[in-house]
Design a protein around this nucleic acid. Structure first.
Length: 562
RNA sequence: GGUCCCGUAGCUCAGCUGGAUAGAGCAGCGGACUUCUAAUCCGCAGGUCGCAGGUUCGAAUCCUGCCGGGAUCGCCA
């Protein structure tokens, strides 16, 4: 074999089809050319060597040159020892080797309650963070508070109006352009209680900042409550305003820094192709050289009124993340921000000297339905659905599982009726039911055979080699996939894989359960054969551990009865 | 017009980063409840993986070009 052969394309993995053995490899096909042999001939040579191994029971060459390996019969039951030992920690790995990673998600404007549109990103980000944690990364969960733009001033004016209302003034209809929601009434009342009428009779400059601060704090409190209802949490709430307040103007400092590196210039931008925006004016502006880092265009840092663009602030924010030690950053955004990805990645490269990496996960829109009919939403008519509405109506677990039972970049139809009334359509119950059934068997076993029958020590001592039914082995093989699945899902930043895996694991379990209905000798609890019973209790205890661990990653409760 | 995402069974979607005969659920048809919980299970039927090229031992997967759907396109966030 030539020394410079490419071994990187060789895969050694469990095949999809169990008929192809326990482990399969494509090594012979990959190496046939450099070795100057036909794939099947090379495969035979490798197979011959493998057959000498003790733990290998059989080796076959199949298809175009696959080498299929069958392991000794005792191999699979041995897997359960690892699960029994580790319990819910089985599958935890050191993939991240304590590497720091920052996951930013939700980051909704603090101007009102969480909208249902925020729901998916929130759940996705939260589950992704859980997954990375499980895979051994040191995860920080972050929320970027957009508290510096014009819309928080609008919020302040809206709250001020409610404040005057709370003082007894007749305010009439909420003017166009202000937030009309009732949720600002308590904010107005709190302001009245704190300040009396001392904020009235002054120009806006006198009260705006005070009111804004109180209003933002109130909104963030509301948002945290909403997130808590969804079982979503963050470690850090990072204020955009803090970038220009306190320690000085960090956005300006950063622009100056980029300027010293020659990455900022005054120039003109080509107008967009196609239809021109109505208010387009061709003017000289301050631009970041995003094109040097793979973007399609250079990007403005200052608005026409001289204030910073959102992008400028976001650069400073990501630079701050990098300086806090996060070379790995993940942002979770709505799909409508897709056009923003390249410039942000360009900015991260620029501020990190190429050391930082940003992965942006775009979450597609959720379309709401009720009994097949689209739910129409409009803020003006007050018919928009809040995150809290959804959680209250269908429950936290179904919402979370549904949001995760889909790849992040695929659109999602969410039908209230399907998720509640026809609950069998919802896979969350299928998985939870599997866990509940196992809990039920373990309870029965403890009752009939005594509590020590289900003790950890007893299960560890069980004769696992007696698990030889095809359905039992299928279940064990599935469990053996778990660590690998965790690793790959974490690497791909795809928590939905965990959800699909749990469904399959549950399916294997339900199948086994029902075999016990047809053939009583396959029941888990066999009073005539306690040692076999112990082995089977160990088997399902392991299944429950993995179900619980996976559900924990998804942020869904592993219920013990239904 | 540029950029990004999507196109797989009647419907909703997976497909382990290039592997063997493309898989689930729902809907349809036929079966299993004196139960360790039927919110479950078993079987049948259902496919030009949008189209056409290319890369190689091998493509739903990678590349190019079309077709169709969605998002976005200086200063909003």
């Amino acid at each position: 074999m030539p020394a410079d052969s490419d071994f990187s394309k060789i895969a050694v993995e469990p095949p999809r089809d169990a008929a192809h053995g326990d482990i399969a490899t494509n090594a012979a096909m990959v190496l046939a050319r450099p070795a100057g042999l036909k794939p099947r001939d090379l495969a035979e040579q490798i197979a011959k060597l493998l057959r000498e191994e003790d733990e290998i029971e059989g080796v076959e060459v199949a298809g175009p040159g696959f080498i299929n390996i069958r392991l000794a019969p005792l191999f699979w039951p041995q897997v359960l020892h690892g699960v029994l030992e580790a319990g819910r920690d089985f599958g935890r790995c050191r993939l991240g080797t304590a590497q720091k990673v920052n996951v930013e998600y939700v980051s909704a404007n603090p101007t009102g309650p969480m909208h249902v549109g925020h729901c998916r990103g929130a759940v996705f980000g939260d589950a992704l963070a859980n997954l990375l944690d499980f895979a051994g990364f040191e995860v920080t969960r972050e929320y970027y508070i957009n508290d510096a733009g014009a819309q928080v001033d609008v919020l302040a004016r809206s709250a001020y109006l409610r404040y005057r209302e709370a003082l007894g003034e007749e305010i009439g209809a909420i003017p166009e352009g202000l937030y009309p929601g009732d949720y600002l009434k308590p904010v107005g009342a709190a302001l009245a209680a704190e300040f009396g009428d001392s904020l009235t009779g002054h120009p806006e400059e006198a009260w705006l900042e005070t009111v804004r601060e109180r209003a933002i704090a109130a909104m963030m409190e509301m948002i945290r409550d909403d997130l808590a209802a969804l079982n979503v949490r963050h470690d850090v709430f990072f204020s955009e305003r803090s970038l220009v307040r306190g320690e000085g103007d960090r956005i300006g400092a950063l622009i100056a820094e980029l300027g010293r590196d020659g990455l900022v210039y005054e120039g003109r931008l080509d107008p967009p192709k196609g239809k021109l925006p109505e208010d387009w004016e061709d003017r000289e502006q301050t631009l970041f050289r995003a094109r040097e880092f793979g973007d399609d265009s250079d990007r403005p840092l200052l608005k026409s009124d001289g204030s910073y663009t959102y992008f400028a602030a976001d650069i400073a924010y990501h630079a701050d993340k990098f300086r806090r030690g996060f070379a790995d950053m993940i942002d979770v955004w709505g799909a409508d921000h897709g056009g923003y990805v390249k410039r942000m990645q360009a900015a991260v490269k620029a501020v990190s000297g190429g050391e930082g990496a940003l992965d942006v996960k775009l979450v597609q829109l959720v379309k709401l339905y009720r009994g097949g009919e689209p739910v129409k939403m409009s803020k003006r008519s007050g018919t928009f659905v809040t995150l809290r509405d959804v959680v209250d109506e269908v429950g936290r677990d179904p919402v979370r599982f549904m949001m995760l039972y889909r790849k992040n970049d695929a659109p999602l139809d969410f039908d209230f009726q399907k998720v509640t009334e026809q609950s069998r359509d919802n896979p969350v119950f299928y998985v939870q039911y599997a866990h509940a059934r196992i809990s039920s068997v373990l309870r029965n076993a403890a009752e009939e055979l005594g509590a020590e029958a289900v003790s950890a020590a007893n299960l560890r001592a069980a004769p696992l080699e007696r698990l030889d039914d095809a359905a039992e082995l299928t279940l064990i093989r599935r469990m053996a996939e778990w660590p690998r699945l965790v690793e790959q899902a974490a690497l791909a930043h795809e928590p939905h894989r965990v959800a699909f895996y749990l469904y399959e694991l549950s399916s294997d379990f339900h199948g086994l359960w029902n075999r016990g209905k047809d053939s009583p000798q396959l029941r888990f609890i066999r009073k005539d054969d306690t040692s076999l019973t112990f082995a089977r209790l160990a088997l399902i205890q392991c299944t429950a551990s993995i179900l619980a661990a996976g559900l924990d990653i998804l942020g869904v409760e592993a219920v013990e009865e239904m």
